[in-house]
């Protein structure tokens, strides 16, 4: 991954989340308070503002991860801002202070990032949260390294499916957990936005 690809990845995420803002809010309205799309769109918009001036683009992956993390931490709000933001800050040291990294480092960065989300949110697979997409995706990525970037379109589809599968779960973490059994039958909005992120990973790094 190069710094250009890093920026493209997060630009893509910002654009795709904005396109799905209403759907994310609707998912959240069913089992939460209806602002997941609004919050992510606001924070990712601020992040995109960082790159309005191409001259200012960082040439350093570690700094970029920290910068995106701090921006999301201070602009998204709610649980998603704290989780995405603090995880990116914590995972930043895994990336080199250079303009590119190899695939192994990239996967380690994502793994560190996901582990931090699990720790901070005290969530595990099956709790009906973003972890239901993030954890299996990282594990799948690690188990299929020899296939290279060709595997990313497959992962993108899998991530979408893992998000869809949260429909049958009863929430044990986050605001949806207050609904008890009434949370069953709705897709978790955090898992949906996470699947959008993996779609961007494919779009920018796949093929």
């Amino acid at each position: 991954m190069t710094t250009e690809q890093f920026v493209q990845l997060w630009q893509c995420f910002g654009t795709v989340v904005r396109a799905h803002q209403e759907h994310l809010d609707d998912l959240d309205r069913a089992i939460g308070d209806g602002d997941h799309g609004t919050n992510l769109t606001r924070g990712l918009g601020k992040m995109q503002d960082l790159w309005k001036d191409p001259i200012d683009t960082e040439r350093n992956l570690a700094d970029l991860s920290k910068k995106v993390g701090m921006t999301l931490l201070s602009t998204v709000g709610g649980a998603s801002g704290a989780l995405w933001g603090s995880a990116l800050v914590k995972a930043a040291p895994v990336l080199p202070s250079a303009s590119a990294c190899d695939d192994e480092t990239l996967v380690l960065w994502i793994e560190t990032f996901v582990s931090n989300i699990e720790e901070r949110g005290k969530a595990q697979v099956g709790d009906k949260t973003m972890v239901d997409v993030m954890r299996p995706a990282v594990n799948w990525l690690k188990a299929s390294t020899q296939e290279g970037s060709a595997r990313l379109p497959v992962l993108r589809e899998l991530a979408r499916q893992w998000s869809e599968d949260t429909k049958d779960l009863q929430a044990r973490r986050g605001r949806a957990s207050y609904l008890g059994a009434r949370s069953i039958g709705h897709v978790d909005p955090g898992s949906f936005s996470s699947a959008l992120w993996w779609a961007c990973v494919d779009r920018v790094l796949g093929g």
Partner: peptide
Amino acid sequence: SGEIFTSPTPDQ
């Protein structure tokens, strides 16, 4: 204060 029904951020 955060946004409506949204936690404030750590910097605030």
